[in-house]
Design a protein around this nucleic acid. Structure first.
Lengths: 149, 149
DNA sequence: AGCAATTGCGTTATGCTATAACATATGGCA
DNA sequence: TGCCATATGTTATAGCATAACGCAATTGCT
């Protein structure tokens, strides 16, 4: 088990922000939340994120262009293929892995002699709570704090 | 079978550019290739892409921030979950679907009462040809025409 | 044909996402 | 101490995507 190096101040702040948020944040949203801590430039965020992504403490959601704290960093193996489900309404993220899914991708890769280095597995839609709320005629929550497009 | 409306001039040009390229192109790369046809602004590309994405003739690869012509538009159903493998070296894209993968994602969604609306399934790595070339000590091709990061 | 509604188009401006490049600081260690 | 790695701060810039306006073309309907 390789020991992950202690986090630096900036890395700690960025990870803390993501953890506290409990939902995906864009790099610039993180920056805004850390201005009081002295952050001035995007690079401070991106550099911290780079390290956190390397160590698996944070994931990037390509479909949202946003970052989220890992739900189970203890299994920081990085070897297992991880998938995400993202609620378009409340922005909550479910992180899961499925050995069968992994096996099928591996089978495809082996058949094609393709060496997999990274995976992006994301499904977006509506979570149970938001579907229930919508059925009851509730308006709906704002959505993830990424760009509002 | 719903009939897809005929493509407009701009849509035809954008789709043709992607088809001819045979690899993913960023919106701005497409724009550059269509300047001679009179394209001046990114919106002309994005608007055409929007329609092409809707009809399933083009896919967006989130992990590359790039667009690629669909490999089998005849099965334009849009109902089937489609996955992509992207070679980091030669930029070629393999488009495939696997009912078992789809079934596992559906099972997860059903268990969680999650309504899936869109999926992003991408694996990147090295294709067989590029692995062979690398093993033989060849330098390697440039990579996809997206941003060179 | 006449008219409205929709869709597409062209243009300018702007916003969000991410990195390049350079200077400075900091910590471990021979 | 002196060296090297890594982290940091700062400015500038590159790359990706959309907002908002006005106009033109097309479609559908009476």
């Amino acid at each position: 088990m390789t020991q992950t190096p202690a986090l630096t101040r900036n890395q700690t702040l960025v990870l803390g922000t993501l953890t506290k948020a409990g939902e995906p944040l864009s790099a610039y949203a993180i920056l805004d939340r850390l201005r009081e801590e002295g952050f001035r430039a995007p690079l401070q965020v991106y550099r911290a994120l780079d390290k956190l992504l390397e160590t698996g403490l944070v994931h990037r959601l390509d479909s949202l262009k946003a970052f989220v704290a890992c739900s189970h960093p203890h299994e920081h193996a990085g070897e297992t293929m991880v998938a995400f489900a993202i609620c378009e309404n409340c922005a909550r993220v479910w992180e899961f892995s499925d050995s069968k899914i992994e096996a099928r991708f591996s089978a495809w890769a082996e058949a094609e002699d393709f060496e997999t280095r990274a995976t992006t597995l994301e499904i977006s839609g509506l979570c149970a709570a938001c579907r229930a709320a919508a059925a009851a005629g509730k308006p709906g929550k704002p959505g993830p704090e990424t760009s509002r497009r």
